[in-house]
């Protein structure tokens, strides 16, 4: 009799242990795969509780709107970084395509042609980057540093260094009107996240890009057309920058040659925060979303708390360092198994 009770107690204890183990492993998995998502959820709850005015519809929309430009471009930057490359020209492309859109709209009087011209202009710069890097084997850092200057210069030349006011007000709808109470740029950003999320997770293109970033030579020997994949990534990046530039010019009702200065660093920072490896080969779309949101939320909260701009820079830099440290800590735990 006693023995049966003992056995039951034992098996109950064993079952409980197993449950604990499962929960443990589940939590470990979440942390390993989407650590930054967890960090953001915690951060969001904390901000909602402690920061007055943070968790209101108006602020939420404002927050989302503030990250649209970075968010869109981060999607393609993720592919560039995941393939082991780097693109510094994104800020310049944003300005360039905005200027093109403004100029073409004013000259043709057609909003659609203007917007299309802006987007195609961005794509063309991307194709140039891609061709120089993937076909002519230029170092991506140097190459995009050069195109960054060339394209910024181009924007300045076309605009004579001053903002070009757009004369046709219909164009402003793109950036300033809402559908179901949510501004258009947010919808477009969501769409871009979905498209590139699918591209990363569910297509051979995404897997090829990750493979190339993980080991370029092995990928080539496995039959992947490395230069085509890379070129495509840069071209897509150009198009998305073009879209971002056109939307921005619509929001500002003008094409401005100085817009997007330093944008490339914010975008890369958001990617790194989102767990995208600068060495290539590792990227997740949910991590990226968390990275972009963390960047935007920090900025938003600092504004709500009336922290002076100068201090904001310091805080943002510090957060980037903390994020990278966290990531390294996580990877050290993982890589213990790697060897």
């Amino acid at each position: 009799m006693n023995r049966i009770v003992e056995q039951q107690a034992e098996s109950a204890a064993a079952a409980w242990d197993l449950k604990k183990l499962r929960i443990n492993r589940f939590l470990q998995n979440i942390w390993a795969n989407s650590g930054m998502v967890v960090v953001y959820v915690v951060m969001f709850i904390a901000c909602s509780v402690f920061v007055p005015y943070f968790f209101t519809l108006r602020n939420m929309i404002g927050l989302a709107l503030s990250i649209t430009t970075i968010g869109m471009i981060a999607c393609t930057m993720m592919f560039i970084l995941a393939s082991g490359d780097l693109d510094l020209s994104v800020g310049s492309i944003v300005a360039f395509s905005g200027i093109i859109a403004a100029t073409v709209i004013n000259q043709t009087g057609d909003v659609y042609i203007g917007a299309l011209a802006g987007v195609i202009g961005g794509g063309a710069v991307g194709l140039l980057n891609g061709t120089l890097i993937a076909v002519f084997n230029l170092n991506p850092l140097i190459c995009t540093l050069a195109t960054m200057q060339i394209v910024r210069g181009g924007a300045m030349i076309v605009s004579d260094g001053i903002a070009i006011g757009i004369t046709i007000p219909e164009f402003f709808a793109l950036g300033n009107e809402s559908v179901f109470g949510i501004p258009n740029p947010i919808w477009i950003t969501i769409l871009i996240f979905i498209v590139f999320g699918i591209l990363l997770n569910s297509t051979s293109y995404g897997k090829n890009i990750l493979a190339i970033g993980g080991n370029k030579e092995a990928s080539r020997l496995a039959g992947i057309n490395v230069s085509l994949m890379k070129n495509t990534a840069f071209t897509l990046q150009g198009f998305v920058c073009g879209i971002a530039g056109v939307i921005l010019s619509s929001r500002m009702t003008s094409g401005q040659p100085n817009v997007g200065l330093g944008l490339e660093l914010d975008v890369i920072a958001a990617c790194v925060l989102g767990g995208v490896s600068l060495l290539g080969g590792i990227a997740t779309i949910e991590g990226l979303l968390a990275g972009v949101l963390i960047m935007g939320t920090v900025q938003n909260v600092l504004n709500l708390l009336n922290v002076e701009t100068f201090y904001q820079y310091v805080v943002r830099g510090a957060i980037l360092i903390i994020a990278v440290l966290l990531d390294q800590f996580k990877q050290r735990n993982q890589s213990a198994v790697m060897r």
Binding site: L210, G214, N215, E217, L221, S277, M338
Partner: peptide
């Protein structure tokens, strides 16, 4: 290691 596997995948 350098031509075969993609270690991080």
């Amino acid at each position: 290691k350098y031509e075969g596997i993609i270690a991080v995948r």
